[in-house]
């Protein structure tokens, strides 16, 4: 995973709640068997509308998505995270994320930042007044900063450390292989096995 320390970039304001993962990347894109090449599928249906914010020339190259509450609901598809990253987003800010999406994003180094809706509104106002305005998402200090806005955010120490170091979860877990083997030795014998009968 790519490490995340701090990032500064321009904002894409997405004034919608309940942005589900079907909107982020529709199902017909999920037939691909790679982790890349999803950028053209990002918000596929909404991008057909020339007024959609991602089509605004002033938003080209912006790297921080600021969205309404309940971002990433629905399907567990990690393709939603890959699509945002493939497009160029480094961080997403919302007042509430769906659990699976948030877990997936942190495993890929896409930083999801939960801030009060009131701060989200101020970021929207800032960027809508001045699309060139930048925001800094600082994982070291767990803080979001923009002109006139300083907001601390929560992220547990362990998740933060994994992101800062860009660590591979599987390697970390395999350091405890002996604990896994011990647990396996004491599982009840009636637990089912999938071997063909």
């Amino acid at each position: 995973m790519e490490a995340f320390t701090t990032h500064t970039g321009r904002i894409v304001p997405l004034r919608r709640s309940n942005v589900d993962t079907d909107q982020i990347i529709p199902a017909h894109w999920l037939k691909k068997v790679t982790r890349d090449g999803f950028e053209d599928g990002l918000f596929d249906a909404w991008r057909k509308d020339p007024r959609f914010v991602l089509n605004d020339p002033a938003r080209q190259g912006a790297t921080v998505l600021v969205a309404g509450p309940d971002f990433g609901t629905g399907s567990s598809r990690e393709h939603a995270v890959w699509a945002l990253q493939n497009y160029g987003f480094k961080a997403v800010i919302s007042s509430r994320f769906a659990d699976i999406f948030r877990g997936n994003s942190l495993k890929n180094g896409l930083l999801t930042v939960t801030l009060p809706q009131e701060v989200v509104e101020r970021l929207w106002e800032l960027t809508e007044a001045d699309p060139a305005a930048e925001v800094t998402v600082d994982l070291v200090d767990r803080q979001v900063r923009a002109e006139g806005i300083t907001a601390d955010f929560d992220l547990d120490d362990n998740a933060r450390w994994r992101l800062l170091e860009g660590l591979d979860d599987i390697s970390l877990t395999l350091e405890h292989e002996s604990s896994i083997a011990e647990y396996e030795a004491r599982r009840p014998r009636y637990k089912p096995r999938t071997l063909r009968l």
Binding site: G103, I170, L172, T173, L174
Partner: peptide, 20 residues
């Protein structure tokens, strides 16, 4: 519970998941 593809790989490799 549902998981993403990175976690699918983790379970395939370790039969475990780190979970809060």
């Amino acid at each position: 519970f549902g998981i993403g593809t990175s976690q699918v790989e983790h379970v395939l490799a370790t039969q475990t998941l780190p979970m809060s």
